[in-house]
Structures are given as structure tokens and as C-alpha cells.
Design a protein around this nucleic acid. Sequence first.
DNA 1: AAGTTGACGACGA
DNA 2: CTCGTCGCCAACT
Length: 104
Amino acid sequence: MRDDLMQGILEYLLTIPEGKVVTYKQVAEYLGNPGYARIVGNLLHVNPDPERYPCFQVVNHKGRLAPNFGFGGAEAQKIRLERDGIRVSEDYYVDLEEYQWKEG
DNA sequence: AAGTTGACGACGA
DNA sequence: CTCGTCGCCAACT
């Protein structure tokens, strides 16, 4: 189960355009389980691959970065996002209206 | 096995 | 926006 979800998550991450972000819920819906929002975060936490997958492009529904992001905390995530052209506030918030990836 | 935790979301105040 | 509460489900203890 965990492996299937993980594969779906990583696959979805790869579909996110650079300079855009998605919410955990969007990933959950992609997996076919809207209630998996926290599962997505949990799985990415136990199985992080920031060197391979843009997990830093995933934010919560408030557009905020993960406060306990591994590999340097939100600070590292903020840098990665700005590196992709995404402006992040000093409070680690992104403008969802501007950067949230809308599939349609 | 049973209880707690958590990179979350939605609703109410 | 913040704060508290409930629901959700895999991972951890």
C-alpha cells in the first residue's frame, strides 16, 4: 500500500510545472483518496527524496511551507522554491493565487 | 495488538 | 488571518 501511494505521489510531483506549487489535497485527489492529504505529507516525511522529486513544491492548503521540512527546515524549502522562480514570504507563505498549479 | 503522532483539511468561533 | 475541534489514515512507539 505504502509503495503504491508513494509511486503515485512521486509521479504526480514530476508532473508539477516548474514555478508552480500544489497542495497536499491535490495530490490526495490525484491518488483517488481526498482523505489522503495527511498521508501524502506523512509518506513524504518518512520517504523524502528532495534530490529527485520536487516535494518542496508541495504546500499545505494555506500555501505555507512545511515548518518541519527535513533537510534544513522550511528555510531550505524556501530556497528551493525561490530557485524555481517562486517568491516566498518571510513567513514561509506562497501566493496560491499566483503559484498554485491549476490542472485546467 | 493498542495507543499516539503528524510535511493535512474543513468547519466554527 | 488565528485558534480550537473533528475527521482522516499510514507510520511509529
